[in-house]
Design a protein around this nucleic acid. Structure first.
Lengths: 134, 134
DNA sequence: CTTATATGTTACTAATATAGTAGCATTTGT
DNA sequence: ACAAATGCTACTATATTAGTAACATATAAG
């Protein structure tokens, strides 16, 4: 059971590094030499981040990526949603017979509380905060 | 992303039902007619619960399952651990280069906090409590 | 003692999610 | 023109989860 998959994890590292480079462009080649992640994997991840407006890209020689918005405006929940979908810990397997009414399902209520906490934490933590704690 | 998989979910329903039957044995046939879960799936789940000492079984005609310990002594964390393994939200994908020291990894720390909360909640909730909330 | 009906046990298949790779197209500074 | 970067997409591989099947064993009842 994981909260953060490899895509998201990779994205966090990359973005943290990019955020530490002010407005300079960072290429996958640099990230690849910096981290233990294959070039192809990085490219896939960064490309997605670009399409999702987290990063801006510049093509061509000396090209690379920079943040599309301030580090304080990028939170973990954004990245988790992009790479892992909406946080929905509470999937019900037995809707028909058992869970006619979600409100009366004791298990659902407990998991719902946990989910609320997880989402609120993921929302609260931004790249800016993570960078400061380094 | 799910917190509870189908095995665990199934187990909770079954155990709640069995707990509501005092010391009477409950067979998979009864659970199958009660719930929207296939007989084979129930058998697999109940068998595991038996080997893990959550349920006691009686073979033969009129056989079935009963709780092996009081409902107050079975918590969600027990079931999650049996069917999904130890709760370990914090798997690190990049140990070598990046996470030389876990203590200095800001992402790890955040996820660790979340994990602690999740585990503490799963520990706190017992079958007895869930049964009362019905 | 035979039979019907339970669970014990294990092996297998199917579906889904996650991880990882490959290749060609496009852009741009020199 | 060329080298080096991203754009884009399709594909393969692996791991996890879900679901099924078949035979062995035990037991209550007729």
């Amino acid at each position: 059971m994981k909260l953060i998959n490899k895509d998201t994890d990779c994205a966090v590292r990359a973005i943290l590094y990019i955020a530490g480079n002010e407005n300079n462009l960072v290429s996958t080649a640099v990230l690849n030499s910096e981290f233990n992640i294959s070039r192809q994997f990085l490219r896939k991840t960064l490309h997605v981040l670009q399409t999702k407006k987290i990063l801006k890209s510049v093509k061509g020689i000396n090209g690379g990526f920079r943040l599309a918005r301030p580090a304080g405006k990028i939170s973990l929940i954004d990245l988790v949603r992009i790479f892992q979908g909406e946080v929905n810990l509470n999937k019900c397997f037995f809707k028909k017979k058992i869970c006619v009414n979600v409100k009366t399902c004791p298990l659902r209520r407990e998991v719902e509380n946990i989910e609320r906490y997880v989402v609120s934490r993921l929302k609260a933590v931004t790249i800016e905060q993570l960078a400061k704690k380094h």
